[in-house]
């Protein structure tokens, strides 16, 4: 079964949005806003049987079937009513940025389909037919300013043995990335995505990547923690190649399997969608093992006012039954 998790618009979401600077876990935004959205739906009295003046009781959250919805083999957590979302002004007023996180250990062959799915959810959520910028985040890749500096003179692509050393660290090789890129170029050609971008690419990776692209990335996103130590060569190279270096504050591994399991599980902080892993408690939770597939983040900014009107996440996971 496929699980589609969503946060709805987190800008009006309150405390879950804001992390304390001391808490340096940057995937907190996703997990806490998912949790907040689940909780809000679990506790909200449905319109038919609302209790007058009643605070929904904390002790008896509603069974998940009442606040999620299933279409064929897809479970939406919570149920999404796309008719109630959308943007308040004309499309031209917005700058819509989407970031797609491919997750570790998921075959890259699935990405063509994942791209479509992810973009489709965002378009439906925002009631638009295209997005301005799609940034893709490849799994396990992280920007290393020191590495850049040490061999800063050498921006020419080197021998392929570098790629093999990378694959050990879980980073895929350029060829795989390019295969993925082809599917994104197609979405660009169809007019669904205006600009494409990558995240955490250093000079060398960019230099290897660029010549093989038809649609060049116009953005390279670097983690904000490193933004003041971005090596000069990368700044110069990016400028020369017409690539904007932007900042972000996302975790590369944005949704680890354990986090997802806890989020959906039966425990105190869970949404009560999965049954106990030991299968002992005979509740109506789903049985099986969850595997996060991808996460997409979208942000709609009113351009000439600098106001973030809508921001949220979708995350998709596979639930494989009987593996428990």
């Amino acid at each position: 079964m496929k699980l589609v998790l969503s946060t709805s618009n987190i800008m009006s979401g309150g405390p879950s949005v804001i992390r304390h600077p001391t808490v340096e876990k940057s995937n907190t935004e996703l997990t806490s806003s998912l949790r907040a959205n689940f909780t809000a739906h679990q506790r909200s009295p449905s319109s038919e049987n609302s209790i007058p003046n009643g605070t929904p009781t904390r002790l008896n959250p509603k069974p998940f079937r009442s606040w999620t919805s299933q279409h064929e083999s897809t479970l939406y957590i919570p149920a999404i009513d796309f008719s109630s979302s959308g943007l308040s002004e004309e499309r031209s007023q917005y700058d819509i940025t989407v970031k797609l996180f491919y997750l570790p250990n998921i075959p890259s062959s699935r990405r063509c389909l994942q791209n479509r799915e992810a973009i489709d959810l965002v378009l439906r959520e925002l009631h638009v037919s295209s997005i301005d910028l799609l940034i893709v985040s490849f799994p396990s890749i992280s920007f290393d300013a020191d590495d850049e500096d040490s061999d800063s003179d050498d921006v020419v692509p080197r021998a392929a043995n570098e790629a093999s050393s990378e694959s050990k660290s879980g980073v895929e090789d350029i060829d795989t990335m390019i295969q993925t890129w082809r599917t994104l170029e197609k979405l660009h050609d169809e007019g669904i995505i205006d600009r494409l971008g990558v995240a955490e690419f250093g000079t060398q990776r960019l230099a290897k990547f660029l010549p093989q692209t038809h649609v060049r990335p116009s953005v390279d996103q670097i983690n904000v923690r490193d933004c003041c130590v971005v090596p000069k060569p990368l700044i110069l190279y990016a400028k020369q190649e017409g690539i904007e270096l932007l900042t972000h504050n996302d975790c590369t591994n944005v949704l680890p399997r354990g986090t997802l399991r806890e989020l959906l599980g039966p425990g105190e902080k869970g949404a009560g969608i999965l049954a106990c892993p030991d299968g002992l408690s005979p509740q109506d939770g789903l049985q099986g093992d969850v595997e996060p597939q991808w996460v997409v983040k979208y942000t709609a900014v009113i351009k000439d006012r600098g106001v973030v009107e809508s921001k949220g996440y979708f995350a998709v996971a596979e639930l494989r039954e009987g593996l428990c």
Binding site: N9, S12, G14, N37, S84, G86, S88, S310
Partner: peptide, 15 residues
């Protein structure tokens, strides 16, 4: 923070 309301997605409370 505004209190979370699950139906406010469409308007974002701006206008």
């Amino acid at each position: 923070f505004p209190s979370r309301s699950i139906k406010s997605t469409s308007t974002s409370g701006l206008s």
